[in-house]
Design a protein around this nucleic acid. Structure first.
Lengths: 192, 192
DNA sequence: CCATTTCTGAAACAAGCATTTCAGAATTAA
DNA sequence: TTAATTCTGAAATGCTTGTTTCAGAAATGG
């Protein structure tokens, strides 16, 4: 016997995510958010909650997209090594596209230090990527696609760290070639 | 015929730096700053300037410390490779000490995106490290200390990226061993 | 169409923000 | 000591912040 919510929550979260991603958590005001989401603050507080809650939802939304992407890649018919290489190249492409790619990285440095909830979400996201990379390196080794005898866990950790740095490099230098060269070097390390 | 400034500017900047480093630029209020610096806001505005200016001074202060550190290392009597290895180990030690080590990294992700001045300071800092690493790798190769035939410039870029990621890893996992293993892997890569 | 429930928009809220003001204390040099 | 100058502390500034309120519009099921 009553009215329904007027706005599409997922669309609104997506918009909020873009703003947070550009300006950071503390650099984003509630006005910025409600403007982008095209809703009134009362609606926001009635449905999603306060600013913190919205940020959590945004980070979760983003990590879920990444998770689904990895799940899709894992079911690919390609060989483990090819899956890995494609993944790395797409990661580079996302960085140099200048999109809101580095949301998790930005959140890690700005918010995770003092916010356990965000830290936990980011850890879960990081661990999922870790498992993906780790298992595919291991499989590729078994198949003989990778000649490196290094520990897959170490290589996975190493890739994740390096990837974070690529984001910083691109913020400072906006040089796609720099990132591509580093990615190629990492791939090369796997195969020798 | 007049009074002098009462507080030691360098000490005050150092204190401000620690606060910024912990809470980020937007997460730090002027109260936080004046409390830590133990000065009144009027004194701050009369000597250093506004919040932005203070932040610039803090980042500069931090990068100058790093520069002096590298200059000292460069004049060491040790071999190029030893200088590099010491540098890398000390970089790890600084991260896992949990100090304000990642000030530049945090600033890169939170502020540099939308602040050209900060971006320029960070680029200069990054380029100085780059030159240091690059030249020492090249020298170590000439002396036969490093067997990798990879481009020193690529390796330097790669190290800087990786180092950024170590900071994130330590924020999320607080696991010193993880960082140490990655550092050892990088060093190993140089010598094979 | 009606009664009920829920959502929305605009305004109001107090608290916090960065910044400025200014009287008076402190220091200086003569 | 005195006169000139500069620094400091506390208060006030106006603006922005995140959040709440509430009257009225809108949708719902009967």
């Amino acid at each position: 016997m009553a009215r329904n919510v007027e706005f599409d929550e997922e669309v609104a979260i997506q918009k909020a995510m873009e703003v947070f991603s550009e300006k950071g958590y503390n650099g984003t005001s509630l006005r910025d958010l409600t403007d982008a989401m095209k809703i009134n603050s009362s609606s926001l507080y009635n449905t999603i909650g306060d600013k913190q809650e919205l940020f959590v939802r945004c980070v979760k939304h983003y990590t879920e997209i990444r998770k689904r992407d990895l799940q899709k890649r894992a079911t690919s018919a390609e060989s483990p090594f090819t899956i890995l290489v494609n993944y790395i190249h797409d990661a580079v492409a996302e960085i140099v596209s200048g999109a809101e790619s580095c949301m998790t990285v930005k959140a890690a440095f700005e918010v995770a230090t003092n916010d356990q909830r965000i830290k936990d979400i980011l850890k879960e996201d990081s661990e999922y990527s870790y498992q993906f990379i780790c298992s595919h390196i291991a499989k590729a080794m078994e198949k003989g696609e990778i000649s490196s005898e290094e520990d897959p866990q170490l290589l996975a950790d190493y890739f994740i760290s390096t990837w974070t740095g690529w984001n910083e490099s691109y913020i400072l230098y906006k040089d796609p070639v720099k990132i591509q060269r580093m990615a190629n070097y990492f791939i090369k390390q796997l195969s020798k």
